[in-house]
Design a protein around this nucleic acid. Structure first.
Lengths: 337, 337
DNA sequence: TAAAGTGCTGACACCGGTGTCATAATGTAA
DNA sequence: TTACATTATGACACCGGTGTCAGCACTTTA
């Protein structure tokens, strides 16, 4: 049960540590016969290099940090799933770091994280990809980072997003085509760039159909279910009541549905409801929510893959990509009567 | 911007590395004056020890792994939250490892994980705390582990759980007191020990009221929403239809609710529905689900805290604790008409 | 007063890898 | 055949900590 280290392999194979190291890292200048000999010993002794020792020598940890602060548990797990997939492929590990701080405190908190964990890179998930001070701080510390689902920036950062504006546009189009003209809108958390984007898409669709924008139909939410309840109350109290509600995410949409149902309104007959994100809840409730599906796992996976690539090859150019989202129609929306 | 290491601190303070190390680890045999001098240099240079170097020297990683395989995203994030809280307090980090494997493959997968990550310990969340082969494997590898929400075992392991049997008993009692005599039951995933426990509690309550157990009222689920839909179909097709359904978790209960609503049944007037876990969905739908709340975060936090304690003090005795759960009544259950 | 014990400190090896550089072995051109 | 590249290999320092042990100063005990 002796520990198998590079030294045991070396002496077993009758070569030096360094040669073993070369084989390990696929470095050139190893003769075919030596390489095979060493590889055979790897198998024989069931050797795996110690990532900690490697990390010390290279000043790397092989760990990516994932920063998040999101009321949606399903969003968090989706992000994690994508990040984990990328890490796994590259023999990295993922360290999760929920974080509620903002501003000065946020920087301190992240600084602390970096001090104690020596992360090789950081994925910034919403809303952290949209805090320029954080990006600047990471740049100053020379920590590579990737932004997921954040606003487009004219910089050299890694960024994978989907088109929130277009998604919101399409779902509003869907409602308008069903005959809705009075469509309430619930905004998301102001820290998230998606909030502005979705609002923009909503307004673009309205104006493209010549429907006048009505500020009274807009409520400020924050992506939480609770905020959805508050917004729903205001909206359902309006008179005349809008014939449709488009909430910036599914949790808030679910809140509207719950309140409407409590008030004996029939959805979608009395009021149509649409959400965003295609969270599990969108299909767990009745009627199911019409919503926009975004490839969250895929976005995060691509971002982390690029991040890891960037860590080993820092000379890469910016990688900024926008993935497609998809309209999913369910029972919560129907033609206006 | 030079890196601050133990060497810079040592030379700055005019002492040896080792003395700095002593101060760092609160070891005895350092004079008060020396200690202060070194501490001052810590502040001055803003020094934090490199955990990787430390890990190499002590053959530790300061990382805890969290193994899970659960259809409920909210359960996963709750487990993570608890584990993170414990890690943070002890300067550990958390590495998450979703894992679908069973049997032989599971062992290989975990072996791989240990090889590449050198974890100091592992938290086994449901259902992994109930796989004796896995526990034996970890024991053979000398990896400390803690079990969360798993069955009681007469061994020396760390285990924090809540009383599933009692919770299920109480919720069934609640239904019976409302006058229900025909109560359908949806089982959870057979791998989870909670599945048997919850079933046992259900049966104990029935028999304590002299209600005969009827096998036709029991459906096999697996904790997923989808399995809940299948089970709901069978149950709602029964004739006479049961007046209440108790699903082993909230997702399956939500599925019953959705199907019942789709079929124009009024909940709870036509049929009462109860769940388990107090997942977010239990209060996001209408009517809200009567359910059992378990302190998942607290369980995991305690388990990980004990695990970390055990890592530094391996001579500890077993720590096996059962926490209380709580009945939460919402609108989905009412007196039988 | 001598012998034995205690507290404080640093020199040095070590953890398990990687980077640098010198050197040996082999191949190629003159 | 000699001179010069090129490839293959290993010795050794190094990454930034911790563990072991020896040595010194200072008490305590006989």
């Amino acid at each position: 049960m002796k520990k198998v280290t590079i030294n045991s392999v070396a002496s077993h194979a009758g070569v030096s540590k360094k040669t073993v190291s070369r084989v390990l890292n696929n470095e050139p200048n190893v003769s075919a016969s030596t390489r095979e000999k060493v590889l055979a010993v790897f198998k024989e002794l069931d050797y795996t290099p110690n990532p900690i020792a490697r990390g010390l020598a290279q000043n790397r940890s092989f760990i990516i940090g994932c920063l998040y602060d999101n009321p949606s548990k399903s969003y968090i797990t989706r992000v994690q799933t994508g990040a984990l997939a990328a890490c796994k492929e590259n023999n990295y590990n993922l360290l999760i770091h929920p974080c509620e701080f903002r501003g000065e405190e946020l920087i301190n908190n992240v600084d602390q994280l970096l001090q104690t964990s020596r992360l090789d890179g950081i994925v910034l998930t919403p809303p952290f990809g949209d805090f320029p001070e954080l990006a600047d701080f990471l740049k100053s510390k020379n920590i590579p980072y990737a932004r997921v689902a954040s606003a487009v920036l004219q910089d050299d950062s890694i960024s994978v997003r989907s088109n929130d504006e277009q998604g919101a546009f399409e779902i509003t189009e869907h409602l308008i085509k069903l005959g809705h003209k009075s469509i309430a809108f619930i905004k998301g958390h102001p820290d998230h760039s998606a909030t502005q984007q979705r609002f923009k898409g909503y307004r673009r669709s309205l104006s493209s159909h010549g429907i006048e924008f009505d500020e009274r139909l807009v409520e400020e939410g924050n992506f939480s279910y609770h905020s959805g309840v508050d917004s729903a109350r205001s909206i359902l109290d309006l008179s005349p009541r809008p014939t449709a509600v488009f909430a910036s995410n599914d949790y808030m949409a679910a809140a509207v549905l719950k309140l409407a149902t409590q008030r004996q309104l029939k959805v979608p007959d009395d009021i149509s409801i649409a959400g965003f994100d295609n969270a599990p809840i969108a299909r767990h409730i009745w009627p199911g929510l019409t919503t926009i599906a975004q490839p969250v796992e895929e976005m995060t996976k691509q971002a982390v893959t690029q991040l890891i690539l960037h860590i080993s090859q820092p000379q890469e150019q910016p990688y900024q990509i926008t993935l497609e989202s998809q309209l999913i129609t369910r029972e919560s929306t129907s033609a206006v009567k």
